[in-house]
Design a binder for these strands. Sequence first.
DNA 1: GCGACAG
DNA 2: ATCTTGTCGC
Length: 220
Amino acid sequence: MQVNQLHPWPATVAEAESIQDRLRAQVDLTGGPTAFALVAGLDVHYHGDDELTAAVVVLDGGTLAPVERVVAHGRAAFPYVPGLFAFRELPALVTALERLTVTPDLLVCDGYGLAHPRGFGLACHLGVLTGLPSVGVGKTPFVGTHEPPGQERGAWTPIVHEGATVGRALRTQRGVKPVYVSQGHRISLDVATEQVLRLAARYRLPEPIRHADHLARHPT
DNA sequence: GCGACAG
DNA sequence: ATCTTGTCGC
């Protein structure tokens, strides 16, 4: 698939932050499709110093059967700074997406979207670059506060940051730690939550991310 | 001001 | 993210 060119690469924290502030204006949070024929999971595995492998696995949105798998090897493109995490993985993830022969209808990203210090996490960034609907799924809390959701599958509570709801803590399986869902691009919070719950059919994390995680760790 | 902080 | 054993539960 085609992905828009990454803007001049930031050399400093201030430059990276200003790119986020500029691209944030392009995020569409008003909604979009509510059904997705092809769903992609994205993840990155780190080895050694700055080496990494990005993996994308596209699943049939109905059966959740894998349709295509691609990887891209590279190096971390930025130091790790909370809030600028996306700049580490973006080049390798974009390379992997460009190697897909099919175009997904939804990107399920490992990390946050709107629930971010400047409202522009990895999921938003990938959504804007591709133009595709995207959702962020975090494994640990980041910004904002929330009450613990009920123990049953599907229970959720809002994540509130600076007076606004920016995501949801969602219990995807009974008795597991919640995952943190936030909008990336072209998706409502309701649809994002519904999709993450549906995709996390058997385990805590959504199937697309589990497949991508496995592929990034065991490339073939 | 200080600490904490997605992966 | 990664470095790592044992242990509990399905």
